[in-house]
Amino acid sequence: MNAIETRDLRKTFGGKVAVEGLTLEVRRGEVFGFLGPNGAGKSTSVKMLLGLVYPTSGAATVLDRPLGDVHVRARIGFLPEHFRFHDWLTAAEFLRTHADLYGMPDARVPKRISELLELVGLAGHRDKKLRDFSKGMLQRIGLAQSLLNDPELVFLDEPTSGLDPLGRLLVRDIIRDQRERGATVFLNSHLLGEVEVTCDRVGFIKHGRVMAIRALRHGGDGGMELEIRASGVCDGTVVQLNRWAASVRAEGDMLKLSVPNEDAVPEIVSYLVGTGARVYSVSSRRDSLEEMFLRILGSEGGL
């Protein structure tokens, strides 16, 4: 079951392509990181999924409903990138207004507001106007707003950009709580560390296109470097290893391979042994997210 499915979602503004054919599946209950340089099309993608921006072409479903379905938004939470809110409201009034817009039952609202203010560390500021909030406090209240309705799916667009390290830890905890609750989290970010510690899978986006999707936990297909020490490996065998590996280099009795996932390891070893090679050691190293980022998106940025 997928929380989000998109097919060739495309958006152009005038002649400029913001998102070029987004094809993506986000599973229910996972924390999905959307990683890419600034201007890569992350926010536009999220806005299309929320019905704020209309795609030029392509199709998508969110929580099994087609794009533009109004009712499904009652089950979605959203923290916008620039967290600009009506700053003449107090924190409690702001949450009250948004609870009304969600159509939440009146009886539940006061308790929920208190819980959320407590959660984001703003309980002492409930009657303070948002215009007197710091950037970090605005982001916290925005985060509270995105959780008001206990959403099945939460979009967080750069949720830690205004936060200090303590605030970032809070966001991590909140994301963890959401996962434990069974919610799906779609996290837009350009901060590698944040994605690395919170996400189950990550999509790399550049120039409005998904370049790769990798799992970050539970083994899976994170992409890894393999070093094999073996003797009796002929050139033909090395060439054959390309069946499993994205790249293969032979240096003396060392073979260095980049493989997409760990499922390839036993197959490669068994193939080598089958050719008569003698395998002495196999060591694997998983790519750090930073290495993946640089390998997939390149170092020149997305602009």
Partner: peptide, 14 residues
């Protein structure tokens, strides 16, 4: 232009 409309329009209202 300020973006305040985004958090309103993403709610279940038309």
């Amino acid at each position: 232009s300020s973006g305040t409309i985004q958090s309103l329009a993403a709610k279940p209202i038309r």
